[in-house]
Structures are given as structure tokens and as C-alpha cells.
């Protein structure tokens, strides 16, 4: 089983159409990975799907980097 970091990076790469190698922990979805506002909404939906959780809109807005996504998922998984 892949760990959370790997799973998040895989989803980010898939959703944003970038190479997994380009997806660093510090990468910003918008500034570094070329996402637009619609991409980020879809990315959050994909994370919800993968980790079977619900990310409230006000929390989702704060997730702008790969590390923030990893942190959010780690903190809220299995709660």
C-alpha cells in the first residue's frame, strides 16, 4: 500500500496532467503546476474520492500546495 504522500502526488499529477516527478511537496497547484480555479475544485473532489472523506469548502480553499493536501488528508483520515 502506498503512503498518503505518494497517493496525493499521484492524484495531483493525474488531475493536473503533469509528470509525477514535477510534483514536489512544496509545489503550488496554481503557481507551479498550472492549475486554474476549476482544476483546483476538481482536484479536491478527486482527493475526497480517493480518501473517502469530505473536505468542506472553507478548508478546501486553504489547500493550495501539495504539502497542504498531504497534511489535511493525514490529519483527517480515519477520524
Amino acid at each position: 500500500m502506498e503512503n498518503i504522500e505518494q497517493r496525493v502526488k499521484k492524484i495531483v499529477a493525474e488531475q493536473l496532467g503533469v509528470n509525477e516527478a514535477e510534483v514536489k511537496n512544496e509545489s503550488s497547484f496554481v503557481d507551479d503546476l498550472g492549475a486554474d480555479s476549476l482544476d483546483t475544485v476538481e482536484l479536491v473532489m478527486a482527493l475526497e474520492e480517493e480518501f473517502e472523506c469530505e473536505i468542506p469548502d472553507e478548508e478546501a480553499e486553504k489547500i493550495t500546495t501539495v504539502q497542504q493536501a498531504i497534511d489535511y488528508v493525514s490529519a483527517h483520515l480515519n477520524k
Binding site: 476549476l38 475544485v41 476538481e42 473532489m45 475526497e48 469530505e54
Partner: peptide, 10 residues
């Protein structure tokens, strides 16, 4: 409604 994707309309 949370399952409606942002690319549904476009």
C-alpha cells in the same frame, strides 16, 4: 450536489 464536477457545465 457536491458530486457535480466543475467541468460539468463547460
Amino acid at each position: 450536489p457536491r458530486k457535480i464536477g466543475p467541468f460539468f457545465i463547460p
